[in-house]
């Protein structure tokens, strides 16, 4: 029993690491640019296809292809922010919602057309390997993904807290108007934030590839959890999203284990409702602000 419980927690934490990469991206964009990016899942999908094609065409390990998928999506994010998002920023939210939603539909259908609906997997030497400790096991591919995901989150945290650009982003996130009055160039900050968020989605895609199949709808699977984590961890709060993602991974895993395999999400949403009932602004909300 204890072993089953421990294993369920390990499983939850490992998948929570992937949720974290997606939700940090969503929360970063929301915090800084103040829009909800409905297409975040589709960028995870693009990251997966980049890794898939690098692996099958050139034999590059999906983890190594991080160095391609992240920069490619970073640049794509800057361009999308500059040419599309920037034009719809304004007092009215509707165009922004429609824009990112349209982007999601466009990317989804484009990939259906280009890549077909087939499942694509990459098989690496560590795909089916696991470390065993007594009765417990940790799949190697997921462990690597978790460690890299946590490393990237830590890097982002350092970037946000020590560099001028990072501080400017946090400032814009806390109060955009005052930040602009202090001489922060919003366009530059927004572009970097959007690019960083997409790079994280690309990283999630590359990290998923050794143990998950790529297909056009794959983003939808992960983006739901990301949105729940963003709300639970307080909109715009990177650390909150990270912690909430890990909690949700564990909640889902425990739900499947002890409630039923088709009710893992029930536990997740129950947790969300409880959080909203007792801390309406989410786990990451600072008191007295």
């Amino acid at each position: 029993m204890l072993e089953t419980l421990a294993q369920a927690v390990i499983n939850g934490l490992l998948i929570g690491g992937i949720y974290a990469l997606v939700s940090i991206g969503v929360t970063l964009i929301f915090g800084v640019v103040k829009i909800v990016n409905f297409a975040q899942g589709e960028f995870v999908m693009i990251g997966m296809y980049i890794s898939f094609f690098l692996a099958t065409q050139f034999g590059i390990d999906p983890l190594v292809s991080l160095v391609v998928s992240m920069p490619v999506l970073f640049v794509a994010g800057m361009l999308i922010q500059h040419f599309l998002i920037r034009r719809v920023l304004g007092p009215n939210d509707m165009p922004q919602i429609f824009l990112t939603f349209a982007l999601s539909l466009l990317l989804l259908n484009l990939s259906l057309m280009l890549f077909t609906a087939n499942y694509r997997t990459v098989h690496t030497w560590y795909s089916d390997e696991a470390l065993h400790f007594g009765g417990l096991y940790i799949p190697v591919a997921k462990l690597i993904a978790f460690v890299v995901a946590m490393g990237l989150s830590a890097l982002l945290w350092v970037f946000l807290h020590t560099t001028d650009l990072g501080k400017a982003m946090r400032a814009a996130s806390q109060n955009r108007d005052v930040a602009m009055l202090m001489g922060i160039n919003p366009n530059r900050v927004f572009a970097v934030a959007f690019g960083t968020a997409l790079a994280l989605a690309g990283a999630a895609g590359s990290l998923l590839m050794p143990f998950y199949s790529a297909y056009p709808f794959v983003g939808q699977v992960f983006v739901l959890m990301a949105f729940v984590a963003v709300v639970m961890g307080t909109l715009g709060n990177v650390m909150g999203a990270l912690i909430a993602s890990l909690m949700m991974g564990v909640a889902e895993s425990l739900g499947i284990q002890f409630v039923g395999a088709d009710s893992g999400l029930i536990v997740v949403f129950a947790l969300l409702l409880l959080t909203l009932a007792f801390r309406p602004s989410g786990l990451g909300a600072q008191r007295g602000r």
Binding site: N11, G12, L14, I15, I18, V221, G264
Partner: peptide
Amino acid sequence: PYSAGFTDASP
């Protein structure tokens, strides 16, 4: 029964 299209089969 389980919900189709899960993220993780481990649990």
